[in-house]
Amino acid sequence: MSLLAVRDLAVARGGLRLVEALDFALAPGQALVLRGPNGLGKTTLLRTLAGLQRPVAGEVICDPDTLAYAGHADGLKPALSVAENLGFWSAVFGGAPVGPALAAMNLTELAARPAHMLSAGQKRRLGLARLAVTGRAVWLLDEPTVSLDAASVGLFAAMLRGHLGQGGAAVIATHIDLGLPEARLLDLTPYRAMPGRQADRPAGFNEAFA
């Protein structure tokens, strides 16, 4: 029983296919690390998996209520405190306690500080702590370690390992080594869409008219 599976998936940005013929499945406890040069479509793939955009071809098989997405932006409100920011997302996702998530990312001491007074790395840690309060099984992470120092990367890896240990799963687009030997690597380069190949369904305006 897999938490997330994709079959013959193709994703597009700006009406052009980026990645196609993608097949993988993720069982509980597994992590998948996406690799590939910039502009290949890692972010687009993650947004498609998250349901923010529709796949051009193929399908994403999963329960949308098991997905938690974390993009480049952390979704923090500068006027709210760390605890309030996290508490909001906790309430939206069904009320998981905020304390353990704050502790996991070493934010407990900053709980009362307004988010606009945090450093870039601290904001990122708060953004990642949000994942823990969603209570969702599949984490879709887009460059989660940007602006984190080595110690914080270690914290995050520990949180991720704990999540996988509880039967969760994760798809991570990252260029650095997270220290997760159990994670599978998926290099997207071979799946790069070939321009000019006849498609049965155009990805958008551009392909329809090319």
Partner: peptide, 13 residues
């Protein structure tokens, strides 16, 4: 549109 599409394809190739 066709022009834009062809240009976009050119840029990617």
């Amino acid at each position: 549109r066709r022009l834009a599409a062809l240009l976009a394809r050119e840029n990617r190739a």
